[in-house]
Structure formats: structure tokens, C-alpha cells
Design a binder for these strands. Structure first.
Lengths: 181, 181
DNA sequence: CGGCTTCTTGAAAAGTATCAAATATAGTGG
DNA sequence: CCACTATATTTGATACTTTTCAAGAAGCCG
């Protein structure tokens, strides 16, 4: 449905691109993206996070192929990067590099301290969403924070009990299986 | 002792540069560097790792000031980057960006799984050192793996018992206090 | 409705942190 | 050159947190 070269939208949970496939770089206009290291025979492992304003897939400018799997943690809007097409200016690349290193430090910090603090930091990093604070799946949150889904669930219950989260976001049932035959 | 603009050496444990100070970017020719996020009033917190071949301090090309504290984990040789001086070529910057994202994924992976596995992965990441397998301090290893110094020490003892590490690297006593008055 | 998946909760087990004390090392000063 | 001091490292015992295992509740889709 999404065509290369123009703005894309991806629903939460959907695959944006896969490691090894050819493609272009994108700016995350809104939403959040999970990046996983994955190879042939290697099970996907969480590698990094991208939030509003971050650039993903920049390695395609060098290799023409993606290095990571990208999955939407929330409903996402992506626009092609660099904006004008062609090669990005050096200064623009430097800004991306600097942002990337800051984000990496954020992600590393998500795995420090006790479970409740980590979950709180993750929710804060995902940003104050306007009205519907739909959280990512427990599995995604667990992979990002290096906890288990059960522990994440307990932390969220605790945050709801203490009023730091609204009493009940909607649950998720059977996910939409998006096969490509 | 080290002069800007030419190759530098830093002994293990020494500060390479500090956040907020002006300076240039460097290539890690050999050794390993720990990067810490640190601000005014904020205690230093481990943020990232750089090993042989990585570039550190690239943000100075944009801001003229370092974003992180850099500390040598092992004896280090650094050379100015980009090599020719001046602005780096776009392709070169892209290569640095890609390497940076790969390294970030490595560091995130150092905080997955049980203590013994993490310590083993850290040692592997620091690279096969030729003859003297001098490990970083327990405190550095603990900060990087998000463990305590005691747990890291127990893991290393276990690795020595099982022969995966030589029976006894030298210990460290009182470190050299390098004040600058 | 039936099947599938995610989410939640409980109880027990495992792993790590914490606290405390002994040992080792390098630098300092006599 | 040797004792002395400050710090790092190691090890042990205990407390705490998280994982693991298990079962039930809830939502989505055909």
C-alpha cells in the first residue's frame, strides 16, 4: 500500500522494513520504531529505538540495504530522508550522527536500575502522546528494557494503581497477522 | 603532554576529554574508550563504548564541544579525525554513522542475559588483546554491563576457574591520582 | 461462538544486590 | 629499600528483585 519515495504510515506492530532488503532512509515524523538486529538463522534481538525526529535506515545510503529490522511500536508516519532526495549535506549527516549517539545513550539508560524505573523511563522516552496513551505491546517493552513481559505487566499495573497511568488503556487481542506470501 | 592535532596516547583509566570542553574528533587506533553522559550536577552515567577503529567526539564538528566524557578503558592510541583535517566527506560520515549504530547495538546486547554471559561478551567485544589480557577495572566493567563490581568479580573468578581466562592477570592497587591544579 | 493471542496475577525458584570483611597492589615517605 | 596507607579486588552470607512456571481473564477475528 505504501509507495517508496513519499510519506508512509504504519500501524502499531507492523513491520516497516527488514534487514537485508533494499530501500531508502526515513525520518520518523511521528510515532516510535523498534530496530532489531537480525540475520539469517539469527533470532531477532532488540538493537535500538527511534522516536519522533530520528532518522532510520541511513545505512542504505552506503550499502543500499537495511542493516536492521524496523517495526512500528506505535502508529507511525515516515517521510523520505533526505528531504530533497539525493545525497545529504555533510552538516545534516553530522546532526543525524549526533542525534543517533544521544539516542543510543538513552536506550542504554533504559536498562539501568530497577524494573519500575526502567518502565517509567521508557514511557517518558516514547513521549507524551496527545490523547490515547496506547502503550507498545508488553513484549516490545520487555525486549527494550531487558525485562520479562510479566515484570513489565506488573510495573504497569503498579503505575495504574498509583495513578501515574490512566486506569485502563485497551488491551490487545489477537494481532493482525500480516503475511507476505 | 598530548598536543592537539597529532596522535595521542592515553594510559588505561585516564580521562581523554570531558563533556562541554572544546576539542576535536578522534579515531581510536588501538585500545577501548568509555563514554559517559555527564552534565553540571549530574553524576556521570555510562553511555557508550568505542573500540579499535571507532570515531569519538564527532559532535565537535557540529558544536565545537564534546557531549560525553571519554575515559580510556585500556591503554589507547588516538589519531585526529578526519585524517586530512577539515570537513569529512559525506561517505566517510555515513560510514561512521553506520559503525556507530552497530556499536550501539553491541552495547545494548551487553545488558541482556545473565551476568556471566554479559561479562564474557564484554571481554569478547574489547577484542583479543595480543599478550597481556589486562581487563578494565571492575567498576568500568560493572558500569558497562549494568552489574555490580562484586558480581563482575565473581564472574571473572568463575572464568578463571574454568580456564576461559588466564589464571591471574595482575591486580590493581592504588590508582595514580592525576590531579590538575 | 471457538480459537488464538495477549495480558494479568500468583507462588516458588533463581539470580543479583547489598553488606561486611579479608586480601592484594601501587605509590608514598622514611 | 621497606613499612605504611589508600584503594581495588575478592569472597562470604543474607536480603531483595526478578524470572520462571502456571493458570485465568480479555480482546480480536473468522
Amino acid at each position: 500500500m505504501n509507495k517508496a519515495g513519499q510519506t508512509q504510515t504504519h500501524p502499531a506492530g507492523s513491520r516497516i522494513y527488514s534487514a537485508g532488503k533494499p530501500g531508502q532512509a526515513w525520518r520518523v515524523v511521528s510515532g516510535a520504531v523498534r530496530l532489531d538486529r537480525s540475520g539469517p538463522g539469527v533470532e531477532p534481538m532488540f538493537a535500538n529505538l527511534a522516536v519522533e525526529g530520528d532518522i532510520i535506515g541511513a545505512e542504505t545510503l552506503l550499502f543500499q540495504r537495511y542493516t536492521f529490522d524496523a517495526t512500528a511500536l506505535a502508529d507511525c508516519v515516515l517521510s523520505p530522508w533526505p528531504e530533497g532526495g539525493g545525497a545529504p549535506a555533510g552538516e545534516s549527516l553530522l546532526a543525524v550522527l549526533t542525534a543517533s549517539e544521544t539516542r543510543a545513550a538513552d536506550v542504554v539508560a533504559l536498562r539501568c536500575g530497577q524494573a519500575l524505573e526502567r518502565v517509567k523511563r521508557l514511557i517518558a522516552l516514547l513521549g507524551p502522546r496527545p490523547d490515547a496513551p496506547a502503550l507498545p505491546s508488553r513484549r516490545d517493552m520487555a525486549d527494550i528494557t531487558a525485562l520479562t513481559t510479566e515484570t513489565v505487566s506488573r510495573c504497569i499495573s503498579a503505575l495504574r494503581r498509583t495513578g501515574m497511568l490512566p486506569p485502563d488503556g485497551q488491551r490487545r487481542g489477537r494481532p493482525q497477522l500480516s503475511h507476505q506470501p
